[in-house]
Design a binder for these strands. Structure first.
Lengths: 120, 120
DNA sequence: TCGATCGTATAGTAAACACTCAACATACCG
DNA sequence: CGGTATGTTGAGTGTTTACTATACGATCGA
């Protein structure tokens, strides 16, 4: 599946090579210089901006949130959401820490259900 | 209550003055230069680092997460938590967007309950 | 062997971030 | 008037972020 525990750069390189795209071509596709991409892929440079990471995710058919997380970044729309209810979100997140993916999914569904009810 | 819709700087200034602490004394207390604090309080400079914001929150008896949110920042421990389950958290957060504080609180309690069960 | 293509090394940069310091004006206190 | 406290101004600094351009060596196909 899409998950592994390696670095951002190594992951991008692996996925790009799996798609048989050259570094120059890929760099052009996502709007960055080949040299920069080269260093990023070898983790010599930090991951690029959110915008570029989104472009990379799109080009590789990956989930943007996941690739952003691998880059140590948080999607800006999620940051915005949290800022609207900082205390409640903080409480929730600290409570959710340690839950399994399945449990998290259940809570997400619950939230979705609540939202739908509200919308009625 | 602790919430209002004004800027980070204005809020700090208001709370500091309410506590009758001088700028220089307060600056010393939170470990920054008076000049810098002055500019920050008038929103001439961006809010300071997470560390200083925490010190300010402590000195003012405010919730750190809330003050961080006002500064447009996210507590680093929360960012860490999200990164452990990026997909599920993204799904949850986008679903939770638009829920009321009360509903959020219910979900936080649910999460807490789930965690306790796990720990058994 | 020519040249096209591959990735890489080196160097540099513009802008933002997170601050500090010295000096100043203003006002009040004794 | 002298001293002390207030907040403010302007200028400057080191560091990090997010990149780019030029040039180089290796490889591979015709």
């Amino acid at each position: 599946m899409s998950n592994d525990n390696s670095s951002f750069g190594a992951t991008v390189r692996r996925l790009r090579e799996a798609k048989k795209i050259g570094l120059r071509k890929f760099a052009k596709e996502v709007g960055m210089s080949p040299t920069y991409l080269s260093k990023v892929e070898r983790d010599e440079f930090n991951p690029p901006s959110e915008e570029k990471i989104r472009a990379i995710a799109a080009a590789l058919g990956q989930d943007a949130d996941e690739l952003l997380a691998l880059a140590g970044r948080l999607s800006s729309d999620l940051a915005d959401i949290i800022q609207r209810h900082p205390r409640e979100m903080a409480t929730f997140l600290r409570a959710a820490n340690g839950l399994s993916a399945e449990e998290m999914q259940r809570l997400a569904e619950e939230a979705q259900r609540l939202k739908k009810e509200d919308g009625t």
